[in-house]
Design a binder for these strands. Structure first.
Lengths: 206, 206, 206, 206
DNA sequence: CATGAATGAGACTTCATTCAT
DNA sequence: CATGAATGAAGTCTCATTCAT
């Protein structure tokens, strides 16, 4: 009867596991690991707690599997591009553009995937946005103003100031994290110098 | 008693609050919000839980104040720079360089501050690194290889490939988050286009 | 089909039940009632939980049947001896000696059987041996020393002090239990007196 | 104010701990470790579950402390007797008689203490008495009959047949356990021989 | 009669928060 | 204001039992 090697029972079981993972993905990505209980997942997925534990050894295991599958999905898109036999400029272009598809197709998977390194405010414990976001917003506003005025003064190219601000902030924050996590990789001074070059002049040889 | 000068009692009170916040900072930044209990903070700071609640309405309030003060510390460094009366290139240069000081002086404050948006693996609930980090690592490795070969082929400038990889990843991940959080700010297509321009050609008008 | 002979099906059924009971015996006797789950028994016996419930109404029923069968096995050895037509001294001798066979043949059955009244440390909930065993050991050591010195002083016969200690402790503990369970059977004072007589002078009329 | 080194608070705390232990003792000794939940103990002792965990790391810790204190109480009575400077016959007499006091004063402590090695039917998981007790009862009845008739025939001394039966059973069961637990201590044959001697002729040199 | 996925009550344990001293 | 014992809701996980196939 079956073409594949899985029996109906086995297919159903897999199906159930998928349903649980899908529910968990939604919940974790909305509210964060610590703010979702196994009860919650059970109720939302319309299974019982016991069933969850038939599929996953623990809450952490469930989460880990989720992260793993998200990571795999993203990597299935990006790796092939980086393996193509085309010149590097087109490769990077293609790589960047692939993120369109990723965003469109897997919004919440991606959010969970990134939440390993980039943790949205939503996902973290308490909701402290208001004040903090204000501070962060103020900085970005000013940064953006700098870019705008620099463009007016023909010091900077005419690019979108919002994206520019976002990019510089992202690069710097990411760099800080890297340095804090593994200080041996690069000296702070060198890193900062490279960032300036890159940000000012871009990667492309003209 | 006096308006401008604080009485000994008031000074002591403030001092105590600072001590609590410092302890909390260390703990939260090491183990994450959900893995630190008020009892932990009380013990480490050598105050009683009751005292903690005299100073802060709730655990969340305490955390929020912490985040706030970290944000303020960072902003106290960055805002003045952005307000200086110098040309934009030097301003951005100065802005970027300021991060050296930030890293050196406030490592753990910053980690907490960023943990609002960039959450280190350490801080997140379960430790799922091994597999996921492998996937992420594979992508970055390939990306880095592309940059290296592009540099050898004189398509790219000779910049540090690690920083370049980090930067591109940071920009893209940050962009994805922004789009997911507030899709109205910019269209995906436009964003991706801008990122390409920026990344390839830099911000500086030659 | 026939009345006296069992059909294959029926024989198989009985066979299966025996297998389940054998597995359960091993597990219960090793780990104790509360530390063995029906799933454990199912797995070990290579039947399904469902099948277990076809044979036994509940976990307790299964256990009860097990105990019952163990009790029967022991009683099948002991009762005939007590029913023999020989003089009482030889009967009791034979009775005592029968325990050799019992130990050798049914170690784990017996352990389970006794576990109804004599519960090994292994079987009870948590493992509290260390300290408690030390205390118990200290008492027995001293008791044993008393017997040794009594033998040297020709007050006691020359018998094995370890067996003597074990016996006295067993008699006393058993008596305590009896009194606590059914105080009406005998007065404490009388019991203690009888125990002294018995222990000092033995049962045999010289 | 206080004569001892404990403050009022500390005394209260100790008092509370004692109350919890007392409640736990009663419950465990009535229903067995696995049939008493921390909730039960909390409710009965009129404390909250949290308070229980302030005093005891875990349910097992609580139980262990209980067993320990019971063991200590018994040993505080028995050890001094065994240490007295009197002849051995009087020492053993005194030792046996001490059990009167033990039973009277600490019934349930003792039950728990013994439950480490001698586990009452009540304490074990399910209640399987009826049938099993019948079997056990049958054996003991017959054994008792043997003693009675042996007494009538002047083979045995005139002692209480119930106590005699109890004693022989206790000795044998205890011996079986010892052999199963540590077979190296004595050979089965030797043990059985010694038991016969002891039981028939007693310990006393005439 | 066999199977084993599913169930859900209940166990142990943690921890934010309160309040009497 | 300071203390810390006490609270109890909520979380994770287990396991005896059921039932559709």
């Amino acid at each position: 009867m079956t073409k594949t090697v899985l029996s109906r029972k086995e297919r159903e079981k897999l199906q159930h596991k998928e349903e649980i993972l899908a529910t968990a993905l939604k919940l974790f990505s909305d509210k964060g690991f610590h703010n979702v209980s196994m009860q919650d997942i059970a109720e939302q997925s319309e299974f019982s707690v016991g069933t969850l534990y038939k599929f996953f050894e623990s809450k952490e295991t469930l989460f880990a599997e989720l992260i793993g599958s998200c990571a795999r999905r993203v990597s299935d898109i990006l790796i092939p591009i980086l393996d193509e036999k085309i010149d590097e400029k087109r490769k990077i272009t293609s790589y960047i553009e692939a993120h369109k598809r990723i965003i469109e197709e897997y919004a919440s998977s991606i959010r969970l995937y990134l939440s390993q390194n980039l943790q949205s405010v939503l996902t973290l414990g308490p909701d402290v946005e208001p004040e903090t976001d204000a501070v962060r917003g103020a900085i970005r506003q000013k940064l953006s103003d700098v870019f705008k005025s620099g463009m007016r003064n023909s010091i900077f190219k005419s690019v979108d100031p919002w994206i520019t601000t976002l990019s510089l902030s992202a690069i710097l924050e990411s760099f800080i994290f890297s340095v804090i996590k593994s200080p041996e990789k690069i000296s702070i001074d060198d890193g900062i110098s490279r960032i300036k070059e890159l940000f000012f002049e871009g990667i492309l040889k003209l």
